[in-house]
Computed example of a mutant assay.
Amino acid sequence: MTIHTHQPGEHESAYDGLLVNDAHWAFGTDFEDPLAGVDTTVPDGIDAAELASYCLALGDDALVLSHRLSEWCSRAPDLEEDIALANIALDLLGQARLLLARAAAADPSVVPTLPEGSPVPPEDALAFFRDDRAFRNVPLVELPNGDFAETVCRVLVFATHRLALFERLAAHPDAVLSAVAAKGVKELTYHRDFAGRWFVVLAGGTEESRRRLEAGLARVWAHRHELGVDAEADGVLAHVLATAGVAEPDVRPVVTDGGHTEHLGRMLAEMQSVARAHPRGLW
């Protein structure tokens, strides 16, 4: 990190110099390429544009849900769950960074054009400089958190489906995607188990905790189809519901017009505000 030394009379306020020096030290510097040292050549037989599109979708799911879960920081029922949700968010953020970097390496045309001289890495450009229409995440991950019970249900459903998918992707012919999936399997197993334990606890708690759990599950279940059909995930979720004595919700699938809800644009406006205000900064 470059240390900025303030000279007397250089700025009227000590804060005036935060964004004017070339090092941009206020946001941090010298972040390594997440794929440094990795052969990112697209294997023969794989369409680069399709690989990039797929990695963007997976990365956007992780990025958006990571931001939603980070909103629980200091608001969870107790300190242990506060830390657990923060750790899940960080795991998903790490997956997002790798997947967005992989998408950019496979097909550089997916990276948005930034102001001249901007040093923003490709994965950050994809995260902070795309409009909501360019995001490819499922609407399930962009919905507001609701209460703790609803968050438990969303993490359970999302992690169960994603874990089953990543177990298969660990054998993907693209070595980068395969490695990301293999690493993610360990993380997602924890996410699923954390949510599964809380699901059973809330179902067997008070009348109020069960009521909230069933209401949250119904809202999440209406978006479950967005994650695709997966027999393995179906089996795991059926087992959790049976253990908790909770019936599968009888709800109609929610189909969003245009692929996203109004909540994504509002979330991105907050998430991207600093980056867009200071496009020459690094963080």
Rank of each mutant, 00 (worst) to 15 (best):
Q7V: 11
P8T: 12
P8L: 05
E10Y: 02
E10N: 01
H11L: 02
H11A: 09
E12Q: 12
E12P: 04
D16P: 07
G17V: 04
A23Y: 14
H24T: 06
A26K: 05
A26C: 10
F27H: 11
D30V: 08
D30A: 14
E32I: 06
V38P: 00
T40D: 04
T41R: 14
T41D: 13
V42P: 13
V42A: 15
L51G: 10
Y54C: 03
C55E: 14
A57M: 08
A57L: 03
S66M: 00
E71D: 14
C73M: 06
S74D: 13
L85V: 15
A89I: 01
Q95G: 04
A96Y: 00
L98V: 01
L99C: 03
L99M: 11
A101R: 05
R102S: 14
A105G: 02
P108K: 04
V111W: 08
V111K: 03
L114W: 13
P119K: 12
V120M: 14
E123W: 15
D124T: 00
L126G: 02
N137R: 09
V138F: 11
P139I: 07
P139N: 07
L140F: 08
N145V: 08
G146E: 01
R154F: 13
L156S: 01
A159E: 02
A159H: 10
H161I: 03
H161D: 06
F166D: 12
E167S: 08
R168Y: 05
R168C: 04
A171D: 15
A175W: 05
V176L: 02
L177G: 01
A179R: 15
K186N: 04
L188H: 06
Y190D: 01
F194E: 02
R197Q: 04
V200I: 15
V201W: 01
V201D: 10
T206S: 15
E207H: 07
S209F: 03
A218D: 12
W221D: 08
W221T: 08
A222Q: 07
H223Q: 10
R224I: 06
R224T: 10
E226V: 08
E226S: 10
L227I: 13
L227E: 10
V229Q: 15
D230S: 13
D230W: 08
E232N: 10
A233L: 10
A233Q: 07
G235K: 06
G235I: 09
A238M: 02
A242R: 12
T243W: 01
V246F: 03
E248W: 04
P249V: 07
V251F: 00
R252G: 02
D257I: 05
G258R: 06
H263C: 01
L264H: 08
L264T: 09
R266H: 10
M267S: 04
A269W: 01
A269H: 09
Q272T: 12
S273Q: 11
V274M: 04
A275G: 00
H278W: 13
P279H: 02
